[in-house]
Every structure is written in C-alpha cells, then in structure tokens.
C-alpha cells in the first residue's frame, strides 16, 4: 500500500470525527433556540391540539437526547429529515440547489484565479511601478466595497443600461428547457447534450454574478500571490537562475510561481469554501436558486432540519476541500511528504 493511501484513510477517519462534532454542535444550537417550530408550522391560528400533534410528529415532545438519537439514526441512512416549511426532504431540496451554487462558485473561482494570478504576478514583477499600485488599489476596492452594492450596480449597468447581461432571473432564460441532468451544471450539461444554445444561455446568466463575486474574492488572491512572488523572486535560487541566464519569463513562471504556489493554494481553498457556502446577497439579487438563499430562509424561519442539513453539507465540502489541498501540496512541493 503506497503511503499516501494510509494518509488518506487517516484523514478520512479524522474527518468523520470532525463531522460528528459538527452534527452535535449544530443540533444542540438549533434546538436551544427558544422558538417553537411546531407552532410556526401550524400557523398563527393554530389550535393547541394541532400544535401538539405537530410536536409529536416532529418528535419535539421527546427529550433532547432521544431527538438526537433519532436524528443521528436517520442521518446514518442518509436522511436529513424534512423541511417543515415545504414538507419536502431536505436532502432533495439541497440536492436540487447545490449544482446552482457549485456552478456559480466554480466560475467565480476561475475568474478570481485569472484576475488574482495575473495581477499578483504583474504587481510583483513590476514592484513599485504604476501597475503594482493599480493592482493594490484594485485589491483594496475588492476587499472593501459592499457586495450588495456592487451587485446592484452590476445589474443596473450591465442589464438595465447596457443590456449586455440577460435579466437577473436565475440560471436560464424563461421558457428555455433545462438540459438533461448529468452534472447539474447547466453549462457542462448543455455541452454534453451538444446544445450550444443552452450552453451560451447558461454562460450568459453566469458571467455577471460570477464576475461580481470574483471581484470581491480576488482581493486576497492578488495580495497573497504578490507577496509570495516577491519572496520567491528575491530568493537565492531565482538569483541563481537569473545568473545562469535563464529567460525572464521562465524565471517568473517556473521558478517563481511554482515556489509561490503553496500559500496561494491555501488561499484558494479558503476562497472556494467561502464561495460554496453560497452567497445570500448574490443569490438574492440574481434570483439564483442556490443553497445560500435557501439556508437564509431556513435560518429566519427556524427550519431545524434545513439548517442542520445545510451546515452539514458545508462542513463536508470543507473537509473534502482541505483533504484535496493537502494532497495537492505533495504534488506541488516534493519536499512535502504525506504519510
């Protein structure tokens, strides 16, 4: 057995412990909120009997540990319970919305990497020149502008005034059929189905919200790429490389960038996790049917199962993401040995 397999198994075991901790913590906290979901579900005119009936159905009349045991048993079977608002299984509801968030997050990350790497590298290479200052101003704006304001301005300018973006009505134009579901990502499924019109339409709906998010999350990427590149470019091995006459491009992109990549990768992990947690503001403004707005609604209506399901899903995403990044470290830097 190669050593990294043992490493992965150990990491997965550790992940299970982390997830169990998350389950317990979230369960306790949602159930400690002194708001009565049975009464909320029954509505403002509910009779005592109806509330009592719902309380029984939702097992709220049981001691907390019994409720938890029930919940944990269902969880092991992959059952996240039903949302009391819609009476539908939370697993299905999250499953329907996850691809929307995933597609937006991945596109935003791609944009952010493009912006972050190019501006970060340029600003390190031209340290102290105007391009460096411009990149820093850009990063500062990205880090400090309010996202909701940016999104509203984006819609106003690119949809309302210029008409470059389609109506902010979710993922596809009204009336267009969804592509046959393979991955749930409309761009990918559109290509798989060989339907260019769907692909173009899905991309048309994606670019503005993704770019808005990318503007914000590229700020830490620019900073980290710049800092890591500056360090790498002033190191001994780069000086050596230059001294032996390697081309400037090779020095920057091969020797500099590869050595700068470890901190960048860590930041990419954080950024992608942030994007995957769904963004309530972007999802609101663009009517994007993702998990962020779903979770927000669940939270304000105290929809236990939906909130728990959401947090658990995000915890799983983080665990997998961290595992993947740790493995990638080994691929990038041969000095790092896993196992």
């Amino acid at each position: 057995m190669p050593p990294f397999v043992g490493y992965i198994l150990r990491r997965l075991a550790l992940a299970a412990v982390t997830l169990a901790g998350v389950v317990v913590a979230v369960f306790i906290m949602t159930h400690l909120l002194p708001s009565d979901p049975a009464a909320l579900r029954a509505g403002p005119l509910a009779s005592e009997e109806l509330i009592a009936q719902y309380r029984r159905e939702m097992r709220l009349d049981q001691p907390l540990y019994v409720q938890f045991a029930d919940y944990a048993r269902d969880l092991v079977r992959g059952d996240l319970g039903n949302s009391w608002r819609t009476e539908q299984p939370v697993r299905d509801e999250l499953g329907q919305r996850l691809p929307a968030t995933l597609e937006l997050a991945a596109t935003a990350l791609a944009f952010a990497l493009l912006i972050g790497l190019s501006l970060g590298i340029l600003s390190a290479v031209y340290f102290g020149k105007w391009i460096d200052h411009a990149a820093r101003v850009f990063a500062t704006l990205g880090a400090s502008l309010a996202l909701f304001w940016l999104a509203l301005v984006g819609v106003q300018v690119f949809y309302y005034n210029l008409r470059w973006a389609p109506p902010p009505l979710g993922r596809l134009t009204v009336g267009l059929p969804e592509p046959p579901a393979v991955t749930g990502l409309f761009t990918v499924d559109g290509l798989l189905a060989g339907d260019r019109a769907i692909f173009a339409d899905a991309l048309g709906h994606l670019w503005l919200p993704a770019l808005t998010l990318a503007f914000v999350v590229s700020a830490p990427l620019i900073k980290i790429v710049r800092a890591a590149m500056l360090e790498a470019l002033s190191s001994d091995f780069v000086r050596t490389a230059r001294a032996i006459g390697l081309s400037s491009r090779q020095v920057v992109l091969v020797d500099g960038l590869r050595n700068a990549f470890i901190p960048v990768l860590t930041t990419v992990g954080i950024v992608f996790g942030y994007l995957m947690a769904g963004n309530v503001i972007i999802e609101r403004v663009f009517s994007w049917p993702g998990i962020g707005y779903y979770a927000w609604n669940a939270l304000i209506t105290n929809d236990f199962n939906a909130v728990q399901g959401f947090v658990l899903l995000i915890a799983v995403v983080y665990v997998l993401l961290n595992l993947f990044i740790d493995l990638a470290y080994g691929g990038i830097d041969p000095r790092i040995r896993l196992g």
Partner: peptide
C-alpha cells in the same frame, strides 16, 4: 442562543457577509 448559533454557522461555513437587505 441565536448569537452563538450565528457565530458557529459563520465559523463552520465561513459564510461571509450577513445580508443587509
């Protein structure tokens, strides 16, 4: 309870800005 919960949710999900609208 709520504050605690929100704090946890933030940590767990690194769920950035809370919506202002």
């Amino acid at each position: 309870g709520r504050t605690g919960f929100l704090a946890l949710a933030m940590i767990l999900t690194a769920c950035g800005p809370t919506p202002t609208t």
